[in-house]
């Protein structure tokens, strides 16, 4: 389960912490929380609230050492390196964007993913800005390129419209996991149904 506090304002943060704590008390599965994380102190606050893993995105660009400090302190398994990727207009790969996808950084996504691994992150969430919200499938090309560039697990994010999109990204893009939000929120499908479809399609998945 992943929570992203997409505005992550200081006044909103305490409400989010309360939600994390209440969720962690009754949901015995790995809980990842992200949004507005910039310093080791931010990691600490979210772990104390009950997060098992903390995701850092824009904060890693402005302060890469925060990733290393968090990995040293809490272990790589607790540090998620989140990247918002957008395809370059000239088709020469993908560029890292920050601030909720609003600001270009000039960083190359593949180089940045490798850097994240070197800094000690335990997994990468690759969110495709191009695919996000379109429900037309994940960015298989970008996901595959990142998965082949690093050894740590890669979670594909952005573009899920149905279970077959998940199967495609898991099978064809070598993603270790696929993240989806909208298709569950809308009631279009359920986690259980998606997992059954994935299992039927030959994906090694835990059924619930």
């Amino acid at each position: 389960m992943v929570f992203y506090d997409i505005t992550a304002t200081s006044e909103g943060r305490s409400a989010m912490l309360d939600i994390i704590t209440r969720t962690a008390e009754m949901c015995f599965m790995p809980l990842t929380v992200g949004g507005g994380v910039r310093t080791l102190a931010d990691f600490r606050t979210l772990f104390l609230a009950g997060a098992d893993k903390v995701s850092i995105n824009s904060g890693a660009v402005s302060n890469p050492q925060a990733v290393r400090e968090a990995a040293d302190h809490y272990g790589s398994q607790a540090v998620v390196f989140s990247i918002d990727a957008k395809k370059r207009a000239n088709d020469s790969g993908w560029e890292v964007f920050v601030a909720g996808g609003r600001r270009a950084t000039g960083l190359d996504v593949l180089e940045w993913a490798v850097r994240g691994q070197e800094l000690g992150a335990g997994e990468i969430v690759l969110n495709s800005i191009d695919a996000d919200g379109m429900k037309t499938g994940y960015d298989v090309e970008a996901t595959k390129a990142v998965a082949q560039a690093v050894d740590i697990p890669v979670i594909a994010s952005g573009g899920a419209g149905n279970a077959l999109h998940m199967r495609d990204v898991l099978r064809d893009a070598e993603a270790d996991a696929a993240l989806a939000a909208g298709i569950f929120h809308s009631g279009q499908t359920t986690v259980g149904k998606v997992k059954q479809l994935l299992a039927d399609a030959g994906v090694h998945v835990r059924l619930v």
Binding site: Q77, G122, E123, D151, I152, P153, D176, A177, V205, R206
Partner: peptide
């Protein structure tokens, strides 16, 4: 050559 950490079910 194996994806590590093993992270998942």
């Amino acid at each position: 050559g194996v994806s590590v950490p093993q992270m998942g079910w």
